[in-house]
Design a protein around this nucleic acid. Structure first.
Lengths: 232, 232
DNA sequence: ACCTGAACACCGTTCAAGT
DNA sequence: ACCTGAACACCGTTCAAGT
């Protein structure tokens, strides 16, 4: 309809991320959303920010996601999709559960800032459904009733996420200049030693575990051990 | 300096909440922040909203709190302050831990929307420090090293909060018309029964526990049981 | 000491319009 | 099909000013 403008003047958009792709897609957008969250915390994940990350207008995202919540859904979905469920074999149910949990932790540990998003979104994606179904299966093999299995599955997912979110090695969610960390350590160390002997003694430990792998290993052992303790 | 305006015309401010008090204070503001969160979710807790709740300008809050984060700190502090620690007695360490956890749960269960705020703020208030110190004490009585006790205390707090946040009885965080709930239940029930047999079978259970008290009781038993399972 | 008014930089989102 | 521009209602926060 309108005559084309004088040729030769291409708009100088610069696609900063994912070079080579000319058009956006959900996968890339989720990629950079997670990257931004990892680097600067979940609060930095903003429609406008993710758009800018791709050299594009904020409204462009609304073509790919109905609204911000759908973007967050997609982030959670990614966490479940990155969980590689172990093949079903003949090991006892509690060992299988352990492997499932470890696999989920491997997927979520690198992204503590978005871990919490997975909590209420297990049933919103095929990947999440797979994890839930598999967990329920093993719990039933352990002799739990349907209702018990549901309650436990619900709690266990939350506990695993809690383990990641509470990871003493990631005290702040991004903008930690480790200046704040030293401040906190100093604050804890300067407390009344007769009122808070254990806190003062472990001031260094409470602000960052010596061995994170060990922390997570113990966490899984506690979760599975707790389930076994309530098994019929 | 300036002449006073004609007498008799008092400003018609209406203090809607906490009738009887003429001036704001932190306690009231935290009260209504928690009330708003309970009713409409944490996102509804806004400086401007809480101010309006007291018939006051948004900027008025900045006299009582340095910024919004300090308001959130105060909410978390309240949760710990509402935790009534049991007196130290001669019962075994794991029973004492159980009582501590139950007490914390009683304080937090009514306010799932703000439970997550307590996670990173244990060491920011005397009440939080008391809970942490007491937990560490009992863990050390159980024979754990200082490092083990720190890791476990860190995780256990998160697990208790997870228990509340994941409570299947509070599926949404406020604006749940139980229309969404029926939708979700229907969605789960309509899944492929051979792909997700357990999820389909427990569709009703996963969207709301029959017995919440039982859910929390099992949760505590699992947490304490898990700790006992890793005890020396 | 305690609160207001106006202003700033930022949100998410809608809607018509461009190519 | 995919993206832009302008606009709206909302944030948190600062700063000078009022009483």
């Amino acid at each position: 309809m309108t005559p084309s403008p004088a040729a030769g003047t291409r708009p100088e958009r610069t696609r900063r991320n994912s070079p080579g792709r000319d058009r956006l897609n959900r996968t890339q957008l989720v990629d950079s959303a997670i990257a931004v969250a990892d680097a600067e915390g979940l609060d930095a994940v903003t429609i406008r920010r993710i758009a800018a990350e791709h050299g594009v207008t904020a409204m462009a995202l609304y073509w790919h996601f109905k609204d911000k919540d759908e973007l967050l859904d997609a982030i959670a979905e990614r966490l479940f999709a990155d969980t590689t469920l172990p093949p079903i074999d003949s090991r006892p149910w509690d060992e299988q559960l352990t492997t499932i949990f470890e696999s989920f932790l491997s997927a979520v540990r690198p992204h503590p800032a978005v871990a919490g998003l997975a909590m209420r979104r297990v049933f919103s994606s095929p990947a999440g459904l797979d994890v839930a179904e598999r967990t329920l299966t093993e719990l039933r093999r352990g002799g739990f009733s349907l209702e018990q299995a549901s309650d436990i599955a619900c709690y266990v997912l939350a506990a695993l996420i809690a383990l990641v979110t509470a990871d003493p090695c990631h005290p702040s969610s991004g903008a930690d200049d480790d200046e704040l960390l030293r401040e906190k350590k100093a604050l804890l160390g300067s407390l009344s030693a007769e009122q808070y002997p254990n806190i003062v003694a472990s001031a260094g430990l409470l602000t960052g575990t010596a061995n994170p792998d060990n922390y997570f290993a113990i966490g899984v052992r506690q979760i599975v051990g707790g389930i076994r303790a309530t098994a019929p």
